[in-house]
């Protein structure tokens, strides 16, 4: 199976959008995961629920919310445009933002589970040995939750690759700019006689997603035993 130049563009764009989405979301997810796993504060349950919201909300609603917040006329988007001249809507960075937001709940979940699996008493032991809270975090909690970070990143990557609803709503379906694999498949489906093109793109999507999912399962099992699951 060989891909046409246009198809390669789609695959490359999808990978770029997903990689950037995961890289940007990663530190945010880990921070949220740590807060939810380790801190007790008023509003913790609300924060947990908000983080999970993109998982249960219709993606088109998430996309619409992003449009309201980050669009040029939006509260944050307007400020970004006025201050830095940055526009997120209708370009690939917008697609990455949409994918990142949709991937966030899955990433936070995987990381939270692995942070919770780190015995807090080990952190206490590190403190008695002279470590400040930051050092104890960097030398104990962070390395021991690394498998969860990797699994969360893989899962987020797979989720980003498949992102459709929020992306098409927020970033639109622009060839070479925001037309990732799912959007390209959707566009091809509108064209009569393009069954082969659809099938090829679908196979690529299946292979990439399955690969990312298997990789994250493998990472979790390797570190937390054969019966652990990331999903």
């Amino acid at each position: 199976m060989s891909l046409t130049a246009a198809e390669w563009t789609i695959v490359a764009l999808s990978l770029k959008v997903s990689v950037v989405a995961v890289l940007v979301t990663l530190p945010v997810s880990y921070g949220l995961a740590w807060l939810i796993a380790r801190r007790r504060f008023p509003g913790r349950m609300l924060l947990d629920a908000l983080v999970h919201l993109p998982l249960v909300l219709p993606p088109v609603v998430t996309g619409w919310l992003l449009l309201i917040l980050l669009g040029r006329g939006g509260a944050i988007g307007g400020w970004l445009y006025d201050t830095f001249g940055i526009t997120l809507v209708f370009n690939w960075t917008g697609a990455a933002v949409a994918a990142g937001v949709m991937a966030l709940p899955l990433m936070v979940r995987a990381m939270r589970l692995s942070i919770e699996a780190v015995d807090r008493r080990l952190v206490g032991a590190a403190r008695t040995l002279g470590a400040t809270p930051l050092r104890a975090f960097l030398t104990i909690t962070l390395p021991l939750s690394l498998p969860g970070i990797a699994a969360g990143a893989m899962l987020g990557f797979a989720r980003s690759l498949g992102e459709f609803g929020a992306t098409i709503t927020f970033a639109a379906n622009i060839e070479g700019e925001t037309r990732t694999l799912p959007l390209a498949i959707y566009s091809q489906l509108q064209v009569p006689g393009s069954e082969d093109a659809v099938a090829r793109l679908a196979v690529i999507a299946i292979v990439l997603s399955l690969g990312a999912l298997l990789a994250s399962e493998w990472l979790v099992r390797r570190s937390q035993g054969a019966r652990a699951h990331v999903l």
């Binding site: 206490g124 403190r127 008695t128 470590a131 400040t132 809270p133």
Partner: peptide, 8 residues
Amino acid sequence: PPEKRRAG
């Protein structure tokens, strides 16, 4: 804090 107490 624990790190300043220097307990073994």
